[in-house]
Every structure is written in C-alpha cells, then in structure tokens.
C-alpha cells in the first residue's frame, strides 16, 4: 500500500492532542507533480496534517511516508511555507538573505555559501517575482510581497514536495490570484499540497480537493457535488461566484 512513487502518503493515520482526536483513520496519496488543496473547518486538522508531513508531529497510529522516506529523512527535500510568519517582521534581514536561508541543511552548516546557492536563490526570487526586492529589508514589504518571499525561501531548497499552510490568509485577492498563477507554473517541477480556506478560488487551479474534518474525503476538482461542503462544515454553505473570484460563505 505504501507507494514509493508517491510524493506523500498517509496510511490510516490517527492523531490526537491528549484526549481530543484530531485525525482519525486518514489515508491520502499525493502523486509527484500533483496539486492538492486541503480544505476544512478551523480545528479540522489541516495544519496538523501538514505538521505530520513535516515530521514535527508523530502519528499515534498509521504511517506517514514522504518521497518514499520517513518525514525526518525526507525533510531536506521538502519546502514549507508557514501559515503565520513564525518570525518578527522587523528583523534586520534583506529579501536575498531570507531566501538564502532555504539553502541551509543541504550541506553541512559550516560550509560557506557556494555560487550554486546564490544561483538557486536568484532563481527562486525570479520564480516568485521578488528579484527586484532582493536588497530590500523584509520589514519594508507588503503582506503579499512577504508571502512571495517566504515561498521563494521554500523554493530555494529545490523541494520535490511543497507544503503551504494557508498561504493566502493574510493577503488581498489580487495577491491571492497571482499566487495561484505562480503555483500552477511550479507544479511541473514538484508536488504541491496547499491548505486553504477559499474553496471557490482553489477549485479553479488544483487537481484534487481533500476535505478534512477529523476524517478525509477526496474530490477530483470541481464542481463539488451538492451537499459536500454542507457535510464538511456542518452548516448550509453556498458558493458565490463574482466574476473571476469565487468565495465561500457560511450562512449561520
């Protein structure tokens, strides 16, 4: 059942925080080059699933395999973009220096940076369209720019699997739209798993949507069958499509 050809495999995984069960019997396979969106209500276990993939958490039962390896072994080949910036925005660091941090862990830490490191950083910045900001301190960036820098940092590791935890939570619609364009271009080179809250926008770009609320159900792209979202969120939900932007609205 464990398939080494897959980028990410969850095999009957259970996870709980103390008494509270967060994931129950979750099985999932993400192929190389696949773009999967993970949606679900808050507290449904989305971030937990990402943390299990990174090896930051260990499953109670079942197995997680990443690129055919354990998460710890595969970690140098993973790219990760956190939900909240886990650093201080006012830290005195330029965009280029930040992106170069993605090159850590590929070789022994005491080795100096090589021309390849700089080249990879330059390419990552070009891919996310932040090369013009290379010398800017990160403190001077807008939310959308910072988000692209964080993705560039993850890309600088030249990952085979890119994990993004709600990358659009703190940016405006325009930046969100650009981000999907960027990810669509990247998927030729890597598998992408993205946690999102925006079902409408996500569905236009991804191969598959996985709905997570304790258990996991997968759906191949749009349109989602009627009732799927209602079951997931436990309340009436309607998709609103205004022009090129679709949004999910909960009606309480």
């Amino acid at each position: 059942m464990i398939d080494s050809a897959s980028a990410l495999v969850f095999d009957h995984v259970d996870f709980s925080f103390g008494q509270r069960s967060v994931l129950s019997d979750v099985s999932l396979q993400v192929a190389h080059g696949e773009f999967l969106a993970l949606i679900g209500p808050n507290g449904g276990g989305k971030s937990t699933l990402v943390k299990l993939s990174l090896g930051l958490l260990k499953p109670d039962r079942g197995e997680v395999r990443v690129l055919g390896l354990t998460p710890d072994q595969a970690r140098p080949r993973l790219g990760y973009v956190p939900q909240f910036a886990t650093f201080r925005r006012d830290f005195p660091l330029s965009v280029r220096e930040t992106v170069l941090h993605g090159r850590l862990g590929l070789r022994a830490w005491w080795r100096p940076l090589t021309p390849q490191d700089h080249e990879a950083a330059t390419q990552a910045m070009a891919a996310t369209d932040v090369q013009d900001l290379a010398t800017r301190p990160i403190a001077n960036l807008s939310g959308g720019q910072l988000q692209r820098v964080l993705i560039a940092r993850a890309l600088a590791t030249e990952p085979e699997l890119l994990l993004l935890d709600e990358p659009t939570a703190h940016v405006d619609t325009r930046a969100e739209h650009d981000l999907f364009g960027l990810l669509a271009r990247l998927r030729e080179r890597m598998a992408i798993v993205m946690v999102s809250h925006d079902v409408g926008l996500v569905s236009r770009h991804v191969d598959r949507i996985a709905c997570l609320n304790l258990t996991l159900t997968c759906h191949t792209a749009m349109p989602l069958a009627p009732g799927v979202l209602e079951n997931l969120y436990g309340m009436p939900v309607r998709l609103i499509d205004h022009g090129d932007r679709a949004a999910l609205e909960g009606v309480l």
């Binding site: 990174l54 930051l56 970690r75 140098p76 993973l78 990760y80 956190p82 886990t86 650093f87 830290f91 660091l93 220096e97 930040t98 941090h101 993605g102 850590l104 862990g105 830490w109 940076l113 940092r153 590791t157």
Partner: peptide, 19 residues
C-alpha cells in the same frame, strides 16, 4: 554566522532545515 542568524530569525524554519 549562518545557522545563528537563521535560528535567531525563524527557529521553526531553521529546525526544519535540520539545524
């Protein structure tokens, strides 16, 4: 220098990079 700055800046990311 590099591991020190990376860890001071973003501990979680540095840990994920194996530092």
């Amino acid at each position: 220098w590099r591991p020190l700055v990376a860890t001071t800046f973003d501990e979680e990311f540095a840990r994920l990079r194996g530092l």
